[in-house]
Computed example of a mutant assay.
Amino acid sequence: GTLVPVGRQGELRTYVVCRKRFDQTVVQQGLEAGADLLLESQPTSAEVKPDGVEIEIINQRTKETRTLRSKLLIGCDGAHSWVRRRFKMGHPKEMLVGFQTEVVGYQGKERWLEMYSGSEIAPGFFAWVIPSGNDTHRIGLWSRADLLDGRTVLDCYNDLLKHPLWKDRFENIIETARYCGPVPSGMIRRPFKERVMVIGDAAGMAKPTTGGGLGPGFKQISSIADKLVQRINADELTEKDLKAVTKTSWPKMKKEQDRARALRDLLVSTRTDEELDEHFANFAKPEVIALINEIGDIEKPVPLGLALIKKVPAFRKLALQAGVKLLFT
């Protein structure tokens, strides 16, 4: 295994979010802004009418049904979006699977995020250990079903913990929680139709390089919020109207997703373990680490990827493989 220490001691590179507190705050802000919150409920049908959308929901506990009407239906309902499926809006380009635990007792470098790669622990992708404060860490990995060769992400997680190169770091951990779920990446073909729109994971907005979905989801809606409010107030919500609202930002976001995926495939997802070893040997060179520290940004990986291909001789042979999509889109 080759260690590539990116970052400088004392320099803050990114943040860790407590998702529970984050979600609670978002809900609180929504309620304060006038939103209504319906618990234990799920939709059973939705139909676009000339003057709006009619949605029928059922209370899962009481089995009571009620009908809601709105000018616009926005599906922010996750990777397996009911809204997306109901209105046949397409599928995310990739549906990956992620697994993560929360633990105490991990023996790692304080305030440093660690990443691991290789076919044994995260085929085509990577595993991570993220410090989350108070001697707690998040340990996880993600991959794609077609790369797992019949294994599960739990199998990969156990292999990560038992790997002879670093098993000592994990031997005293105590698990306090675990999570597993899909990671939809690649904006769907039709993220809007007449009076219907999907946002976030429902639209396939997770980043292809890290799997993160919060940032892209908020960027997706913040880029259109003002224009969308105007259209709602004017009741101008045809598919053509919604295309006009999104045309200056969403196609650009999709293009950035495609470029980031091409970069990920070029450097990681399509590489053998032997090729990954070569890549990391090059990453570990002082001049390359300096370049990564100068340009690298976990939120914007494409500029660094292009810089590596153009400026590092060992990676120039990848330029031809990068193709038109990565270099010129």
Rank of each mutant, 00 (worst) to 15 (best):
G34Y: 04
V196D: 03
L148K: 00
K247W: 01
W250S: 10
D146S: 15
W128E: 09
R151E: 05
L113Y: 02
S41E: 15
A260N: 12
D241I: 05
R231L: 04
G305W: 09
F87T: 02
G10Q: 11
W112M: 02
F192T: 00
R138V: 13
I292F: 03
L37G: 10
I121W: 00
A307F: 01
G323F: 05
Y116H: 08
C76K: 04
G186Y: 09
V48D: 06
Q29K: 08
V6P: 02
R21T: 03
C18K: 10
V16A: 12
A319K: 14
Q9N: 07
H279F: 13
R84K: 07
K20P: 00
G323H: 07
G75H: 04
L242C: 10
L228S: 12
R13Q: 14
T152I: 03
A225R: 11
P286W: 05
K109Q: 13
E175I: 11
A122G: 06
D235L: 11
P208F: 01
V26K: 09
M115H: 10
P216G: 10
G98F: 07
L276P: 00
L263I: 08
W166S: 06
L141I: 02
M89R: 03
D265V: 03
A244F: 07
G140L: 00
R111G: 12
I309Y: 04
V83R: 12
L38D: 08
A127V: 03
P5G: 06
T14W: 14
R19D: 03
D23A: 11
G90M: 11
A319D: 06
A244L: 14
L31C: 10
T238A: 09
W142V: 12
S70E: 04
I121D: 00
Q24E: 15
P286G: 13
A46W: 13
S143C: 03
S117Q: 12
G52H: 05
A79N: 03
V302K: 14
A206P: 04
F125A: 09
G200V: 13
W82S: 08
R86G: 01
L141D: 01
H137F: 15
Q321P: 00
D149L: 14
F283L: 14
W82E: 15
V268K: 06
E47F: 00
T67R: 11
L38E: 14
G108L: 08
P286C: 13
G213Y: 06
S222G: 07
G105W: 02
R61V: 12
F218A: 09
M115Q: 15
A307C: 01
A206Q: 10
